[in-house]
C-alpha cells in the first residue's frame, strides 16, 4: 500500500458516495446513465468473486464489499425506487459494443485460461470502458449537473492515481501487471476530455456545458 493507491481507493469510494447521495437527496437519477451503473456492477461482480477464495487483507475485503453493495444499491435506486426519474431516452449507448469486445479480448489476452482469471480480466477490460454510456449521455444532452461532474472527476481520478501507484510499484517493488496497466491507461485517456472541461469550467463555478 502506498499513498497513490490509498488516494485512488479513497477517490473511488468518494465517487460512489457522491453518486448515491445525489440520487438519494434529490430523489432523482436524472442525468445518470443506468447502463454505466449496470456495467460497473458487472465489473465488481466478476472481479470480486475472489472474495470467497482468496484473502488479502481486511482492508481489501471491506472495500470489495463496499463496492459490491454500493453499486448494487445504485442500480436498485435507478431501476426500481426512482425508476420514473431515469432518463431512458438519452441513455442510448449500445452496450453490446462494449461487452462483446471485452468478452473476446479477455478470452484471448489473459494471464491464465481459468474461469476466475478470465472473469478478472473481463472486469478489468470492461471497467476501462464502462463510463462510455455516461460520457455519451453527457455529450448527448450537452451538459451535466455540477454534482454529476464531481462524481465523474472523482471516478476518473481514481484510475489516474492507480497509474501513479503502478509506476511506484514498478520501481519500488518490481511489481507490474501489463493487463491492468494497459486498461488503466485506456480508462484514464477516456476521461481526459472531461478533466479538461471540469478544470476549465466546473471549478470556475460554471455549468458543464459542451460547445454546441
Amino acid at each position: 500500500m502506498n499513498v497513490f493507491r490509498l488516494a485512488g481507493d479513497l477517490a473511488h469510494v468518494f465517487a460512489i458516495i457522491i453518486l448515491l447521495l445525489k440520487i438519494w437527496k434529490t430523489r432523482s437519477c436524472a442525468g445518470i446513465s443506468g447502463k454505466s451503473q449496470v456495467l460497473f456492477a458487472l465489473v465488481y461482480l466478476t472481479r470480486y468473486l475472489d472474495l470467497f477464495t482468496t484473502y488479502v487483507s481486511l482492508y481489501n475485503s471491506v472495500m470489495k464489499v463496499i463496492f459490491l453493495a454500493s453499486s448494487g444499491a445504485t442500480v436498485y435506486l435507478m431501476y426500481v425506487k426512482f425508476k420514473a426519474t431515469y432518463d431512458h431516452n438519452h441513455d442510448s449507448f449500445r452496450v453490446e459494443f462494449l461487452l462483446v469486445p471485452c468478452v473476446l479480448l479477455s478470452l484471448l489476452i489473459n494471464h491464465d485460461f481459468t474461469v476466475m482469471e478470465v472473469l478478472w480480466t473481463f472486469s478489468i477490460y470492461l471497467e476501462s470502458v464502462a463510463i462510455l454510456p455516461q460520457l455519451f449521455m453527457v455529450s448527448k444532452t450537452g451538459e451535466a449537473e455540477s454534482i454529476t461532474s464531481h462524481y465523474l472527476f472523482a471516478l476518473g481520478s481514481y484510475r489516474a492515481l492507480y497509474l501513479l501507484n503502478w509506476i511506484y510499484r514498478y520501481f519500488v517493488e518490481s511489481h507490474y501487471d501489463l493487463i491492468a496497466i494497459f486498461a488503466g491507461v485506456v480508462q484514464t485517456i477516456l476521461y481526459c476530455d472531461f478533466f479538461y472541461l471540469y478544470i476549465t469550467k466546473v471549478l470556475k463555478g460554471k455549468r458543464l456545458q459542451l460547445p454546441a
Partner: peptide
C-alpha cells in the same frame, strides 16, 4: 513453474 497471478489491488 508459474507463479499465481497476484491480485492485491481493487
Amino acid at each position: 513453474c508459474k507463479e499465481p497471478h497476484i491480485k492485491d489491488e481493487l
